[in-house]
Nucleic acid binder design. Structure first.
Length: 845
RNA sequence: GGGCGAGUGGCGGAAUUGGUAGACGCGUUGGUCUUAGGAACCAAUAGUGCAAACUGUGAAGGUUCAAAUCCUUUCUCGCCUACCA
């Protein structure tokens, strides 16, 4: 018997799909659409296992949906702007464009080898001017709508590279490449006014039923809505400043206030910046590590000013004003009032500076709390943040905290014009300026007075200059005078040399896929109306916040003053797949070894430390090259393996034995196919309902698991299917029944192993593209069922009997059954619990 | 510190609504065939026990005729987040 030649078969079908454009989609309003999108890759050079997993999941879904009759849009493109291209180009002394295009061509070939059902006619690349031209138009459109603005803001500045670093490029406060301490520098930057839509972006989450709760929670926390009020704290007579504004969620604890703290960047710092002791304090603050943990655990330190703030609820009382390291300038108003009794952080601060600690909320239940000898509630080591009754607070006394007391306090503050109710968001505006070459140019110029002017639409795109020197300090574009200086309508201007954050590129690419060739518009309204929203978006959890939030913002921004668009949520379904992991190897010198090097070292008898499975990464050398694996085992086998071992939302561990067994399984399937063909020649009149029942039941199962993304279970179903058929083929079966069920079997597994099933189907002179098999409901409706018989809650036997029989009939059956009747000898039945067609639990004495 | 999630055989993991725990695969063991096997096929495989049976889903309680699934307490691990006023 021939072995299954996957190389030949897969090559053949990939060529067939390519030639016939089998997955080309066009707008067809007579059909229901399904837009399946996987996060598009960054063209880093080669695809990795993460891509294989991501795109296999999407491909199985796309193929399944087409079989159901949906008009499926399944496109692919390239997130092709970004730093790695610039760095690689610098190293190899070539143009980022050439480097990027080479990678795209390699990766495209690799993706095709996976047998993905992609409409390649819709391929886009964000670094092409055909793409970024429209992005520049969006930018100007947003500018016109007032959703883009320019402001000075702090950036991470690398003094060696003379460039801005992204947060993730700052490691322990040092530049990831230069290794020198990163400075905070104020620069003029472009911002998208994402915070304008805080409320919409938050409430929109509730409608996203098919998003993982985890992602929704992460976004919710990121947006960070809090209810409270702003309060003006008047200062005791002072020449420079009259009041300080604070935001608080607990105005009802005002009577317990013992200090006011402001950020070192607070506007009032200008009155102190010349003082040596203040400078020293600022230095002290900057000394604390920049790792997140260090910041959180840093000691709370303050700098006492000569100012005193008046308690707005009792103007006879004043408290000192401090600069404090724990107050953030970019949240609220950069100032807080401290109530040590009811906030742990304030308590730590008060203890350090010996400030008064007076409780104003008393817990309702006294157990576990401290009281002085007069039985007054006191705060000792820990602040009390729970609910309770207001005390020591004049007109607020005895109110229920926090509900009643907050309402009453705000009422009072508003009546007396001291403060007002306020909702505060943590979400900050999105800074999109990058001092980089390889990104979308910002279509703005400045005149000699530094006034902003938009590039006229007809002059778009603003193209990146080519063949420039990338090895300059700072932004390379800043050094290209011929590009930077421009004359418009006879007037001289200087271009904006910053480029856009690459997250902008990916915030609307799913719109572009709807009409990728439209030269006039970024997207065609009719196409977008048909295709959007994306029905199923699939990608890594690492984009849970930024990319997904930015894309959601873009829909809000396009929608703003443009009701016709009417799309507020880009992705109605979201699935986040887990990572592909592999164990790590280190030799005695502590160097990482690749799996191949490990095998080699092992054969030489070296001692190798095997580490626990970790996400595949180049630095740990625990990567597996998908191309080699496909070469060795075939795409179908790889698809089976990548889906089989774990639920798709969880991490999966790469295993060579697992991969091998998937490969063997494809061989077994081929053997089964040969066995089937031999069998079909023989005829038998033997009626075999069992095979039809099993097949139909299995198809229902696979369908259920497909819909629920239980792809690992589908692989198990596939094995069961095989085991069953393989066994059945040992017997004679009615030709028609056998063929009918075998076709259903091949169809149901075709989304998973499309090359194999296409080959088998055509081998049987059938269409390689089958519809999703119809299930014969009558067949699934079995006449007989298996009952579990429990005695006092323990399983004692199973019994097969007619479906839908009554409890009485079943008991009669059990009493009469040869194997079951002895259970009841000398026993009295007290009670029965009967679950129809499933189980009976008989309680006996 | 906060948030979320998960704990099931030697391993990865099944178990739609509380209703036969361990599907399916890997591994292991035994066997068949083979010059050979890292091939193929057959069989066994949660634990204890000859067996009947008993025990078993991190731990301890609880609800229920019935709990991996629901409730309470607790432990462990993973991920995210970080002084958010």
């Amino acid at each position: 018997m021939d072995r299954y030649n996957f190389k030949l078969v897969e090559k053949k079908w990939q060529a067939y799909w390519n030639k016939n454009k089998s997955f080309k989609t066009t707008l067809d309003k007579s059909k229901k659409k399904f837009y399946c999108l996987e996060m598009f890759p960054y063209p880093s050079g080669k695809i990795h296992m993460g891509h294989v997993r991501n795109y296999t999941i999407g491909d199985v879904l796309s193929r399944y949906k087409s079989m159901l009759g949906f008009n499926v849009l399944h496109p692919m493109g390239w997130d092709s702007f970004g730093l790695p291209a610039e760095n690689a180009a610098k190293q190899n002394n070539l143009d980022p464009k050439i480097w990027t295009e080479k990678n795209i061509s390699i990766m495209k070939t690799q993706l095709k080898k996976l047998g993905l059902s992609i409409d390649w006619d819709r391929e886009i690349s964000t670094c092409s001017k055909e793409y970024y031209k429209h992005q520049q138009k969006f930018f100007l459109d947003l500018y016109d709508k007032g959703l883009v603005y320019r402001k000075e803001s702090y950036v991470n500045w690398d003094p060696i590279e003379k460039s801005v670093l992204a947060n993730e490029q700052v490691i322990d406060g040092k530049g990831w490449r230069s290794g020198v301490t990163v400075e905070r520098k104020k620069l003029n930057q472009w911002f998208f006014n994402i915070s304008k839509f805080s409320e919409e972006l938050l409430s929109g989450l509730d409608k996203l039923d098919s998003w993982p709760n985890k992602v929704k929670t992460m976004q919710k926390n990121w947006i960070g809505k809090s209810f409270g009020c702003e309060i003006d704290f008047n200062l005791k007579k002072n020449d420079q400043v009259n009041s300080i504004k604070c935001f608080t969620t607990r105005p009802d604890t005002l009577f317990g206030m013992s200090f006011l703290a402001v950020s070192i960047d607070h506007p009032i710092s200008k009155f102190y910046k010349e003082r040596d002791d203040f400078k020293k304090f600022k230095e002290e603050c900057s000394k604390t590590g920049t790792t997140e943990e260090a910041i959180a655990q840093a000691e709370k330190i303050g700098f006492k000013t000569d100012l005193r703030a008046i308690n707005p609820l009792d103007n006879t009382k004043t408290v000192p004003v401090y600069f404090a390291n724990f107050v953030l300038m970019d949240y609220g108003f950069g100032a807080v009032f401290g109530c040590p009794a009811h906030d742990q952080r304030d308590l730590d601060f008060a203890n350090k500076y010996k400030l008064k600690i007076m409780p104003v909320v008393e817990p309702l239940d006294s157990t576990g709390h401290e009281y002085d000898k007069n039985k007054n509630f006191v705060i000792i080591g820990q602040a009390y943040t729970g609910p309770g009754k207001i005390i020591n607070s004049n007109f607020l006394n005895d109110l229920k905290a926090p509900e009643e007391s907050i309402v009453k306090t705000i009422e009072y503050l508003e009546k007396n014009n001291i403060g007002k109710k306020k909702i505060n968001f943590r979400l900050k505006d999105w800074g999109v300026s990058r001092q980089r070459y390889w990104g979308c140019p910002i279509p703005i110029v400045y005149d000699e007075n530094n006034n902003v002017k938009k590039i006229p639409l007809e002059n778009l795109p603003v193209e990146l200059p080519e063949n420039i020197n990338l090895s300059t300090n700072g932004n390379p574009l800043d050094h290209v005078d011929s590009w930077k200086n421009i004359t418009i309508e006879g007037k001289k201007y200087k271009r904006e040399t910053d480029t856009l954050d690459t997250f902008v590129d990916s915030s609307w690419y799913f719109l572009r896929f709807c009409s990728p060739k439209n030269e006039v518009e970024g997207f065609d309204m009719e196409e977008v109306k048909y295709w959007m929203p994306v029905d199923q978006y699939i990608g890594g959890i690492e984009h849970a916040i930024l990319h997904l939030l930015y894309s959601r913002f873009f829909m809000q921004a396009i929608n703003f003053n443009h009701e016709e668009f009417n799309i507020t949520e880009p992705f109605s379904g979201l699935f986040t797949q887990g990572m592909v992991c592999h164990e790590t190897y280190r030799n005695q010198q502590g160097n990482w070894l690749s799996p191949e090097e490990y095998e080699l070292a092992k054969s030489r008898g070296e001692i190798i430390k095997i580490g626990s499975p970790e996400s595949m990464s180049k630095s740990k050398k625990n990567t597996i090259d998908p191309e080699k694996i496909i070469e060795n085992y075939g795409a179908d086998a790889v698809r089976i393996f990548i889906l089989s071992d774990s639920p798709p939302e969880k991490d999966v561990q790469w295993s060579e034995t697992g991969m091998l067994s998937s490969y063997k399984f494809t061989q077994k399937l081929w053997t089964l196919h040969q066995k089937f063909k031999n069998k079909i020649e023989e005829n038998s009149d033997k009626k075999d309902e069992e095979i039809s029942i099993f097949t139909n039941q299995m198809i229902e199962k696979i369908k259920y698991n497909l819909e629920k993304f239980h792809y690992n279970v589908i692989i198990a179903n596939l094995y069961e299917f095989y085991n069953f058929f393989n066994n059945k083929l040992n017997f004679n079966i009615n030709k028609k029944t056998l063929l009918e069920n075998y076709i259903k079997f091949l169809s149901a597994i075709s989304p998973i192993i499309p090359h194999f099933t296409s080959e088998c189907l055509t081998d049987l002179k059938l269409n390689p593209f089958q519809k999703w098999p119809e299930v014969d409901k009558n067949l699934i409706k079995n006449d007989t069922v298996k009952y579990v018989i429990q005695i006092n809650g323990k399983k004692r036997a199973t019994i097969t009997c007619m479906k839908d029989i009554s409890e009485k009939e079943l008991i009669k059956e059990i009493m009469g059954g040869e194997s079951t009747k002895k259970i009841f000898e000398n026993k009295k039945i007290n009670k029965c619990f009967f679950v129809k067609n499933r189980l009976i639990n008989i309680l006996v004495q």
